[in-house]
Measured scan of single mutants.
Amino acid sequence: MDTYKLILNGKTLKGETTTEAVDAATAEKVFKHYANEHGVHGHWTYDPETKTFTSTE
């Protein structure tokens, strides 16, 4: 398992979190669920070199 990072740049919520996942697709599902639960619906990007997802509203 690898550690993946999420950076949230929402209108009402900003911050970072991490998750352990078997691959990027699994981490993306976890992070999108997390963002949706916190009302963040933004544009998603992923940097495979740093294993970092960013959601920007």
Rank of each mutant, 00 (worst) to 15 (best):
A27F: 01
W44K: 00
P48R: 07
G39E: 05
T12Y: 14
A21E: 03
I7D: 03
E37L: 14
Y4Q: 02
A35L: 12
H33K: 15
K11F: 14
P48T: 07
K5C: 08
F53L: 01
E28M: 13
K51Q: 05
N9P: 02
K29W: 08
E28I: 08
L13R: 06
H41Q: 12
H33C: 10
K32D: 02
Y46D: 00
H38W: 10
E16D: 05
N36F: 14
H43M: 13
K11Q: 12
A24G: 04
T12W: 14
E57K: 03
K32N: 05
A24N: 04
T3D: 04
E37Y: 09
T17M: 15
K51W: 04
T19L: 13
H43L: 14
K11Y: 11
T12A: 10
K29T: 09
G42E: 04
Y46L: 01
A35D: 01
L13W: 15
T17R: 11
K29E: 10
A24E: 07
T52V: 07
N36E: 15
A24C: 14
D23S: 07
K14N: 09
L13Y: 15
A27C: 02
T18N: 05
T56D: 12
T26Q: 12
E28P: 00
G10T: 09
E20T: 12
E57G: 04
G15P: 04
H41Y: 14
A25M: 10
L8V: 08
T18A: 06
T54F: 10
A24L: 09
K51M: 06
E37V: 13
P48S: 10
F31D: 00
K5Y: 14
F53R: 00
T50F: 06
G39F: 06
D2C: 14
F31E: 00
G15F: 15
T12K: 10
T26Y: 07
H33L: 14
G39I: 04
Y4D: 02
H41D: 12
V30Y: 15
P48K: 08
E37A: 13
A21W: 02
V22E: 12
E16R: 07
V40E: 04
E20Q: 14
Y34K: 02
K11L: 15
K5F: 12
E28N: 04
H41V: 13
H41C: 12
E28R: 06
V22S: 11
E20M: 14
K5L: 07
L6S: 02
G15H: 14
L13P: 03
H41E: 11
K5T: 14
P48D: 08
A25N: 08
D23M: 02
E37H: 09
H33P: 02
A35R: 02
V30G: 03
T18W: 14
K29Y: 08
A27I: 02
E57V: 06
M1V: 11
T26M: 11
T56G: 05
Y4S: 03
A21Y: 01
E20D: 10
V22H: 11
H41R: 11
H38Q: 12
K32Y: 06
K29V: 11
F31S: 00
K11M: 13
A24T: 06
F53G: 00
H38E: 05
M1E: 06
G42K: 02
A35N: 02
Y34P: 01
T19D: 01
Y4V: 02
S55F: 15
F31H: 01
Y4A: 02
T50I: 06
E37R: 10
K29Q: 12
I7Q: 04
N36P: 02
K32I: 09
T19S: 04
K5N: 05
H38C: 11
A25P: 08
E16A: 09
A21R: 02
A27R: 01
K14F: 10
G15A: 15
I7Y: 06
D23H: 03
V30E: 08
Y34G: 01
N9I: 15
A35G: 02
K14P: 04
Y34F: 11
D47F: 06
H38S: 07
T3K: 08
T54I: 08
K11D: 09
T45H: 10
G15N: 10
F53M: 00
K14M: 09
E49G: 11
E49M: 12
T50K: 07
Y34S: 01
A35H: 02
Y4W: 04
H33A: 15
H41L: 11
G42T: 04
Y46Q: 00
K5W: 09
A21P: 01
G10P: 02
K14V: 11
A21M: 02
T18I: 08
F31M: 03
F53E: 00
H41A: 11
K32T: 06
K51G: 02
V40N: 04
G42Y: 05
N36C: 13
G10E: 03
T56M: 07
T50W: 05
D23R: 02
T52C: 04
K29D: 07
D2R: 11
L8P: 00
V40M: 08
E49A: 13
E28V: 05
A24F: 13
N9A: 08
Y34W: 12
D47E: 09
G39D: 07
H43C: 15
E37T: 13
A27E: 00
T19V: 14
T3R: 09
D23Y: 02
H43S: 13
T3Q: 08
Y4T: 02
E37W: 08
A24K: 12
T56F: 09
N36I: 14
P48H: 08
V22N: 09
T56N: 09
G39C: 06
G10R: 03
T17L: 15
A21K: 01
T12H: 14
G15V: 15
E20A: 10
E37D: 09
K32L: 10
H33R: 14
T50R: 06
G10S: 08
T54E: 06
T56A: 07
T12V: 11
K51P: 00
T17C: 15
A25Y: 10
H33W: 11
D2A: 13
T54C: 08
E16G: 08
E37G: 07
Y4I: 02
E57H: 05
D47W: 05
A25G: 08
E20Y: 12
T26V: 07
A27S: 01
K14Y: 13
E28G: 06
E20G: 04
L8Y: 11
T18P: 01
D2H: 15
G15R: 14
V30Q: 09
E57I: 05
T12P: 03
D2F: 14
Y4G: 03
T12N: 13
D47G: 01
T17D: 02
A35C: 03
Y34L: 06
I7K: 05
T50D: 04
H43D: 14
T56V: 09
T54K: 05
N36K: 14
T17N: 05
T17H: 14
Y46P: 00
T54N: 05
I7R: 05
H43I: 15
E57T: 05
T54G: 03
H38F: 12
W44F: 11
T19C: 15
T3M: 09
G42M: 06
E57Q: 05
T45A: 10
G39M: 06
P48C: 07
H43E: 15
S55T: 15
T17Q: 08
N36D: 12
A24P: 10
F31A: 01
T12G: 09
W44C: 03
T56Q: 08
D2K: 14
E16F: 14
D23I: 02
L13I: 14
T26S: 13
V40H: 10
T54V: 08
Y46I: 01
W44G: 00
L8F: 11
A27D: 01
N9D: 11
D47V: 05
T18K: 07
T56S: 09
Y46S: 00
N36R: 14
E49R: 11
V40S: 04
T3G: 03
D47T: 06
A21S: 06
P48Q: 08
F53A: 00
D23C: 04
Y4R: 02
T45Q: 09
T52D: 00
G10C: 09
K11E: 10
E37M: 14
E20S: 10
T3P: 03
E57P: 05
L6H: 02
G42L: 14
K29F: 08
T50G: 04
H41K: 12
A24I: 08
D23K: 02
N36H: 14
K51L: 10
K29M: 12
L13K: 10
